[in-house]
């Protein structure tokens, strides 16, 4: 469905000169500093996948999405979506995709929701029956019927987003791009949107590419996640594997029957980070280095265990730590220049 090979996009940036005259001169200025926003991204998405696309602010997510939706021209590499080159074949390409930009509406501010829907159906030449059927389906999950006759400018953010998502799917595209669709939304609306993503994926086989800063979106809706930073893909794999890949550690809390058993000898030879507090032993370990089963086996052989629990690493924590590191790396790179 999506085939990106070494996809790149650079921007020329330069400090702007002041005033009208400066602006005119800037227009003719050559050079400027070349900055790679997307730097050789390889990405293959098969039909029917739901892929989460994450990365810190400024990582190149939006630039990549804009190239895939045909708004931006790539400056390097190749990109095919549904067999078309998005920027060159824009007008054919957009028939096959639905897009929601969380921060900008595709509805017309001054029109009623239903007027916008009607207009989109006309623009995409959706026949009357199909259009009516789709509207009913969207209403059953997104609950948009009560909003249809309100002007878009009077909708709350959550209401508007539900309408925007419906608008993106009026022409029944096989591929849906969601660029931060849950930004600023409350928990109930978020859940509704996630449910809806699952539904269109399951029932229509719609392929979904979702960018978000909310990792619970990714955990709830995406079986696969792609992490990019500095315009490069740093991780591409099943969502549960992301935490391990970023060095997330599981936590095992063991309460021993006797406090005198709580000694470093108990964990000797095990690939764990440990901490002892009275009769309580806290272990942190990586899933790919040792299994919880092995640890339990060793510990119960060495001492009498009263109670035990295992916690998965929190994805928010793991990714937040990664982003902070990424920020530090970026600052270091800027200083080095």
């Amino acid at each position: 469905m999506i085939e990106a090979r070494q996809l790149s996009r650079s921007f020329r940036t330069f400090a702007r000169r002041p005033g009208v005259l400066g602006a005119v001169r800037d227009l003719f200025r050559l050079g400027g500093e070349e900055r790679l926003a997307v730097d050789g991204v390889d990405l293959h998405v098969a039909a029917g996948e739901v892929v989460g696309f994450i990365g810190p602010n400024g990582a190149g997510k939006s630039t990549t999405i804009k190239m895939m939706t045909g708004v931006l021209r790539p400056t390097g590499g190749s990109l095919r979506v549904n067999g078309l080159e998005p920027f060159r074949d824009r007008r054919r390409h957009v028939r096959n995709i639905g897009v929601v930009y969380g921060q900008r509406t595709q509805l017309w501010w001054d029109l009623a929701v239903v007027e916008a829907f009607d207009l989109l159906a006309a623009i995409f030449q959706v026949d009357r029956d199909t259009y009516r059927r789709r509207l009913e389906r969207f209403d059953s999950v997104l609950g948009i019927r009560p909003l249809l006759h309100q002007p878009v400018r009077e909708l709350s953010l959550g209401q508007r987003m539900r309408c925007d998502i419906a608008a993106a799917l009026i022409h029944g595209p096989p591929l849906l791009f969601l660029d931060e669709p849950t930004i600023g939304l409350d928990v109930a609306v978020k859940r509704r949107i996630r449910d809806f993503i699952g539904l269109v994926n399951e029932e229509e086989g719609t392929t979904v590419l979702l960018t978000t800063h909310d990792l619970s979106d990714v955990e709830a809706a995406c079986e696969r996640v792609v992490l990019i930073d500095h315009g490069r893909v740093l991780f591409d794999g099943p969502t549960p594997a992301l935490k391990d890949s970023l060095g997330g550690r599981r936590r095992m809390v063991v309460d021993l029957a006797r406090e005198e058993d709580a000694t470093p000898a108990l964990v000797e030879g095990l690939p764990v980070v440990w901490e002892i507090d009275g009769a309580r032993l806290t272990l942190r370990f990586r899933r790919d280095e040792v299994t919880a089963g092995t640890l339990i086996g060793v510990l119960t052989a060495r001492a009498e265990v009263a109670d035990l629990s295992v916690e998965e690493p929190d994805i928010e924590d793991v990714v937040a730590r990664f982003y902070e590191d990424a920020d530090a790396r970026r600052l270091a790179a800027m200083e080095a220049r």
Binding site: K66, T69, G70, V71, R90, R91, R92, V94, R95, I97, V99, Y101, R104, T105, Q106, I123, F124
Partner: peptide, 14 residues
């Protein structure tokens, strides 16, 4: 200016 041109380009029109 507001980046809404990205939305306008999502339509199959000229």
């Amino acid at each position: 200016r507001e980046g809404l041109i990205a939305v306008d380009l999502l339509r199959p029109w000229d």
